[in-house]
């Protein structure tokens, strides 16, 4: 009979952080080039990971390639530390890298995220790792990857501008409340991953390094610290980050990004902070 291993026991049958060293070197080379060319998507040989595509395989591979024994890892899923994706990825690295984990934004050196940027301002000692489902910002406008590569090479983003123009002409505002494309360093159009537009301004001139990993689409890209990141807009229709005009039911915050939650079966609803750590901190927990 097999011995039963506790679910969180460090795993010694794998290399540190799961990936083999040759794979880490390949990912590391891609990360350095990604930092040198802000916003440009770099193809990489994404490996199969022990979780399905769409669950953060790109982010996990980036985290595995940069993670060291002195790091403190935080993982959030839509701002929350306690949802399935966040818990399972945090537990994965605790097992295969025996690394210290935290839910406190302030304590983390690496924050892997699915679709949010924490409310607490990031610092120079931190690295954000974004899980990206679709790295190509022109994907819905031009399905051919060979063609989008050419458009990026030429810096021709008229398709995205026409789309934004049509949205504004038809409905008076941008049609994207999340994953709103950004211009990085005035050169590359980039998908910020499906973060709400509310978080887009946090990408601009951030003290932290931002790395983006797309596992299924096999792309890595980056925004270095203190780099200009402008949401796509027009002079007469400037980009407006959106937020529900409510207060958090738990901590009362009037500034944090809110999730709307169905509270009962009478159609009652409440709004609470999407960032669970920020909400707990505001409540003094």
């Amino acid at each position: 009979m097999n011995a039963i291993t506790p679910r969180n026991a460090p795993e010694n049958a794998y290399n540190f952080a799961y990936l083999d060293e040759a794979t880490k070197r390949m990912i590391r080379r891609a990360i350095l080039k990604a930092i040198a060319i802000p916003g440009h998507q770099i193809p990489f040989g994404a490996r199969e990971m022990p979780l399905p595509y769409g669950w953060g395989t790109g982010g996990i591979q980036v985290t595995a390639a940069i993670l060291g024994p002195r790091d403190v890892l935080k993982v959030i899923d839509q701002g929350a530390d306690d949802t399935t994706n966040a818990v399972s990825i945090r537990r994965f690295f605790a097992r295969v890298a025996n690394v210290q984990t935290t839910t406190r934004t302030a304590e983390a050196t690496i924050i892997q995220t699915r679709h949010r940027i924490p409310e607490r301002p990031l610092t120079e000692g931190q690295v954000m790792v974004f899980q990206v489902p679709m790295p190509e910002p022109l994907f819905k406008l031009e399905p051919r990857l060979a063609e989008t590569r050419r458009l990026h090479a030429l810096g021709d983003y008229s398709l995205a501008q026409v789309k934004l123009y049509e949205d504004i002409a038809k409905q008076g505002e941008s049609g994207s409340s999340y994953n709103h494309p950004v211009m990085v360093g005035g050169r590359y159009l980039m998908s910020p991953s499906p973060i709400p537009g509310f978080d887009n301004p946090k990408l601009h001139n951030s003290p932290a390094l931002m790395l983006f990993g797309a596992g299924r689409e096999k792309k890595i890209y980056a925004v270095p610290p203190y780099t200009s990141v402008e949401s796509l807009d027009f002079e007469d229709h400037p980009f407006r980050p959106m937020r529900a005009p409510q207060h958090c039911s738990a901590c009362g915050s009037a500034t944090s990004y809110l999730d709307e939650i169905i509270a009962d079966d009478q159609g009652g609803r409440i709004f609470v902070c999407s960032d669970t750590d920020h909400c707990a901190e505001t409540q003094g927990l």
Partner: peptide, 13 residues
């Protein structure tokens, strides 16, 4: 390798 890479990543960033 991890320590060397982090030095390089921080230097490049």
């Amino acid at each position: 390798a991890q320590e060397a890479f982090r030095a390089l990543m921080d230097a490049m960033a």
